[in-house]
Write a protein that binds this DNA or RNA. Sequence first.
DNA 1: TTAATTCTGCACCGATCGGTATCTAAGTTT
DNA 2: AAACTTAGATACCGATCGGTGCAGAATTAA
Lengths: 202, 202
Amino acid sequence: MEITRKAPLGRPRGFDADEALERAMMVFWEQGYEGASLTDLTHAMGITRKSMYAAFGNKEELFRKALERYTEGPAAYAARALEEPSAREVATAFLAGSVSATTRPGCPAGCLGVQGSLAAGDSGRAAQDALITWRDDGRARLRHRFQQAVDEGDLPPGANPELLARYVMTVSNGIAVQAAGGATRSELQQVADAALRNWPPV
Amino acid sequence: MEITRKAPLGRPRGFDADEALERAMMVFWEQGYEGASLTDLTHAMGITRKSMYAAFGNKEELFRKALERYTEGPAAYAARALEEPSAREVATAFLAGSVSATTRPGCPAGCLGVQGSLAAGDSGRAAQDALITWRDDGRARLRHRFQQAVDEGDLPPGANPELLARYVMTVSNGIAVQAAGGATRSELQQVADAALRNWPPV
DNA sequence: TTAATTCTGCACCGATCGGTATCTAAGTTT
DNA sequence: AAACTTAGATACCGATCGGTGCAGAATTAA
């Protein structure tokens, strides 16, 4: 025992799995789950189909892993926003993060969590469900944070954390759609500012 | 000359083209452009591929016609909202219409103009562009209406019709995404109310 | 060296994609 | 009834879909 495995058995893979996943994420982000073919994906990843299947399982699992990477990368603003000291700052940071993430130069316009699979045929149902869960999860975290703000007296006792979370999430999703249609960063930041001009919107 | 064509030559079609288009619209609405296969579409329409091609051209034109029908049907709330007497009522009616159209029982959840083709591969680019144009058009109509409100003194002189239109459209798009994720009508109406609690959001 | 293991590259699988050719049946005009 | 035009059904087209089988190359352990 205690044999420290210095290197895995067999021929080592000839590509960087992290970078390949990053490339796959970009393709899904731009073309959506169903719109991204294995040919598109593997060409962007710089590997063959066989290598992709060996490293990631199948298209569906590749999408799930790309979504995880998206959460920890371009969408990390969401987790950071939750750590802001007040509900107002949480909402402000969340929307500002949405704006910058959906209009980042060098990345596809919009949000992978929205346009990855908003409507789908049979083959895309699993991805569609995964994204619904993903958005629900983000909304739940906002709700908890706003509930905490109510408990702390940061928000008035009558404030509705459920509604506030859905409100912020709705504006964020709308920003993503607008960005996918070509709206610029400054245009969307103005919208975000307008959405938070009276906060909380009781 | 002056021969009044009483009936078109040849065998008359054995199906109602309007109803077939309605069915196709529902399939595109639910599955998106790329997610809806010709098999899905023609089965729902109750006709054969050949009849579909003869009556509508091809899949892309079928989608465009389905989008027109959507505009005049489920999305007719938009045109009606523009006729409201004040900017506030326009925005209120527009968002209320969004809520009810995206959560209508018996129809797919969400908005065809958003989820029909938000992200797409090569084969869906044309549909994607058509929807971007469609949403831009709706936003332009809102902008003109709000400009009119400024001209009439209904909105203060400093109001920004461009921003107001984008704000309303953003919330509407967000409502569509939320609806696609299963949000209920009353939940979304609360969001719409919150978004208009201070209007205009200057 | 040898055996075991795993990655790569290529060809290939059946299924489905959007779109069409063909044939027959059905209707209209003359 | 003849001539003409179109609807409907079926089978089919080449291309692409997601996914694999297989042979060979590369590496580790013995």
